[in-house]
Amino acid sequence: MSEKVSVSPSNQIPQFEKVRPTSLTADAFHRLRKNKAAMLGAVIIVMNILVATFAPWIAPKKYDTVSFKDINGTPTWVTRIFSNMKPIEHGGYVKIREGYLLGADNLGRDLLSRIIYGARISLTVGLITPFINLTLGLLIGLIAGYRGGWLDNVTMRFVDIMYAFPTYLLIILLMAVFRLGASKLEPGSLGYFFSQLDASMGGLLFIFIGIGLTSWMNEARLARGQVLSVRENDYITAAIAIGAPTSRIIFRHILPNIIGPLIIAETLAIPSYIAYEAFLSFIGLGVNPPTPSWGGMIADGVVRIQAYPNHAIFPALALFILMFAFNFLGDGLRDAFDPTLRGRD
């Protein structure tokens, strides 16, 4: 290390090699770029986004075109992978249809096209839900943490109670309220507006709200904890002393200082939101059919897993790859922005 420092005999100040100054964020992104797993995840996510965006151009067929003569049709290469799928020509039961790259489902719809369109649902949920959760959790956590006192007490006890609520049962109940409730509303009411909006989004809106309402508690708890520690800083006292309004203190002084860990926590939670949507579509409370969702496709396919394993395995693999990508990227982001956390849970 001493090579870079040149000390001249006449007691001059040592000359250091000049280094370009970098901001903390740039530093973090540099670390992120060097993380191969995270970069792989990012590439997969970008590819998924491209596929989802340009689905109508990429998909070989329409996702809802039913073709009765191609029901359960399978290309040859798929029958080679799944050894129990013997073609009719070889004494089996499988209709060979080379036109379907991954096969056709039980209504003769192209599996590949449905998987391509299904990426839209999983990605939208994975990218939008964090914002909803962040907003909801931050708002509640900020107010509870900053105000303190009884408000904090009541909010946090409510959070504790919600932790004891079986999450899956709650989300099933909520979705039932949204889905079944929406059918009986009069035009003109707020609920009707929402149900129309939901229908125009293929059922996604209620999925966002459902997941948001069941998972804001983690965010709120985290935000509150952060506020409690930041609140004691001198610069907050100073802001109060010069008469800054509370909203300014919360949003200009506290928020920027606590948002980092929250964003990282949300990134790490993305796979679980994707899994939630898959679960909801799996039990039939997710997106409206015939919009394809990977969870719904798995549910449809699992019934026939002995005869046509490709119907369930391919969407499961698609879901697996996307969740892995988000996991890798999330871990990478956390390690990049907070290197002290590396290797911890």
Binding site: P271, A275, A278, F279, F282, G295, I298, G301, V302, I305, A312, I313, A316, L319, F320, M323, F324, N327
Partner: peptide
């Protein structure tokens, strides 16, 4: 990283 919905099938 693998949820039940993928693991099971």
């Amino acid at each position: 990283s693998v949820p039940v919905i993928i693991m099971a099938p």
